[in-house]
Amino acid sequence: MDIPYTVELRPDTGLYNAKVGIWLFLASEVMLFGALFSAYILLRVGAPEGYWPHGWLNVPLGTANTLVLITSSITTVLAWVSLKANQFGRFKLFHAITLLCALVFVGIKSFEYHDKFVHYEFTLKNGKFADGHMVENKLKQDGNSFTGYAVIRGHVVEDERELYDLNAHKAPAHEDIRIDGAQIAKMGNYGPWHNTYTAIYFTLTGLHALHVIGGAIVIGFLWGPGSKLWETDPERFTNRIEISGLFWHFVDLIWIFLFPVLYLL
């Protein structure tokens, strides 16, 4: 006995097996991201007045990435439509664009990550805060004391909260600032450890990026070596494209929420 309903639809449910499988899987993904979104809300609501960041991320890049993912979603669905219409060549073309979009997305994302890792905040011994991108780092740390110096391109503020709401406080012109080790009380870059906002930002987008990469690998396989199945079992292949497409749309859907929540609000 072979396993039934791998390709044909089961009469009473009207579904083939993989369709049920992928939706169950997506249901669990909803709960996964749901828990992380709950964490986001909780951390945000729990942050002391004035200490939840606004405007820390690059909105043009985020917007670009949103458009990239939306585009990849339409090409994914068109790739599937092409197979339905028996146009294998167009399928190849559309999914090539999907893969390209995935690549662009990950590229932009890594650029944004990099930008956060070279962005430093210094708590100075005079109670002020220096903040900016590292230009030259000649600091040496020994316990809690620093020697050497660093040059950053940024600004110095009196109240740390000015660093948090970048939409409200228009930052003064950025200039190169030299900071001596002796001035520094504490320093750190904007990695996940910086505060709860960067923590949830890196976790949510990191997990999302893993989904993008995973999805791209699957689609890439189906586009390349996996597409041989088209010749022997076109219906099954079309189903696979539909299933991987469902996953891809879901990844897009998550981003549609991540973008405003992390970049805009």
Partner: peptide, 30 residues
């Protein structure tokens, strides 16, 4: 995206049932 790209607008009852449960528990969790 869910309705048109993922065809939820014309999906089967079974999928709707699974997703409604998920929606309820998702809301409950939050």
């Amino acid at each position: 995206v869910a309705a048109y790209f993922m065809h939820l607008i014309s999906e089967r009852k079974m999928i709707y049932s699974v997703l409604s449960c998920t929606a309820i528990f998702f809301t409950g969790l939050m």
